[in-house]
């Protein structure tokens, strides 16, 4: 009965959305109002305005950089909430979880994870430093870095991350983002103005502040997601 009710509510929502969206001419530029106007502007002027050949990066970190700051803040709040929830003081008598020894991983997994860890970190750095040239960017590179820490947690029982290091990294990256935005406000008149020289297109050091912002976002996202993973591994288990 409950499944039926929820399915019918879902079907109602889907039909309503389809009906309300069906007569909007998405991508139809011959209609009386040109709905692709902004997209056309980005396609024609994006590289000239920002110096980044990857137009997704141009939109995310130049035209709509303030929204990106909000996005990173949402992730920070999620990580903070999980940390507070999982570090809640436990009841008495349930503290023997840590003493219950987990079986260690096999030799291949242990050594392999230790061997791959720096390489995956390097790969994550490559992704977020080349965010303005190739697909990828801060969020993708940050998740790759967090995956490296996850691999270490999986391969080595008893591996611990210092929460303080993570917190310092994350705070420094966030402060860098906001300070660059404020310098842009002072130099160019609006928040997160791209005030550095654009350089030549397709060079690594080009596109003004975009690589610096993406490095800050990559470190911040990596530290947040690694903190989530460390919190999940750090608290006791009951299964």
């Amino acid at each position: 009965m409950r499944a039926f009710v929820s399915f019918s509510v879902l079907a109602l929502i889907v039909v309503g959305l389809a009906l309300s969206l069906s007569h909007i001419p998405f991508g139809n530029s011959t209609a009386n109002t040109d709905r692709m106007h902004v997209a056309k502007y980005y396609l024609n002027n994006g590289v000239k305005d920002t110096g980044a050949p990857n137009l997704v990066t141009a939109v995310v970190l130049d035209y709509r950089a303030l929204d990106t700051l909000g996005e990173v803040t949402v992730l920070f709040i999620a990580s903070l909430g999980l940390g507070i929830f999982l570090s809640w003081p436990k009841k008495e008598g349930s503290e023997d979880d840590d003493k219950r020894g987990l079986p260690p991983a096999s030799l291949i997994v242990r050594r392999g994870s230790q061997f791959l860890f720096p390489l995956i970190l390097l790969f994550g750095g490559y992704i977020f430093l080349h965010g303005h040239l190739t697909p990828g960017g801060g969020f993708q590179g940050g998740s790759v870095i967090a995956s490296a820490f996850l691999l270490m947690f999986l391969g080595n029982t008893g591996y611990r991350l210092r929460q303080k290091t993570l917190a310092v990294t994350e705070s420094l990256a966030g402060i860098t983002f906001v300070i660059i935005g404020l310098i842009g406000l002072g130099v160019g008149g609006y928040f997160l103005n791209n005030f550095l020289p654009k350089g030549s297109v397709f060079a690594l050091f080009s596109a003004g502040v975009i690589p610096i912002l993406y490095a800050a976002i990559g470190l911040k996202v990596g530290a947040e997601l690694a903190g989530i993973v460390a919190n999940m591994f750090g608290s006791g288990s009951e299964g």
């Binding site: 992704i127 697909p135 990828g136 969020f139 993708q140 998740s143 790759v144 967090a146 995956s147 996850l150 691999l151 999986l154 997601l225 989530i228 993973v229 999940m232 591994f233 608290s235 288990s237 009951e238 299964g239």
Partner: peptide, 22 residues
């Protein structure tokens, strides 16, 4: 790339840890 980076390792591992705890 975002879907690959998040979906390949992180979500699976976090769900598995949550299942271990419940």
């Amino acid at each position: 790339m975002a879907e690959a980076a998040i979906g390949a390792g992180l979500t699976t591992a976090i769900f598995v840890i949550a299942i271990r705890k419940t």
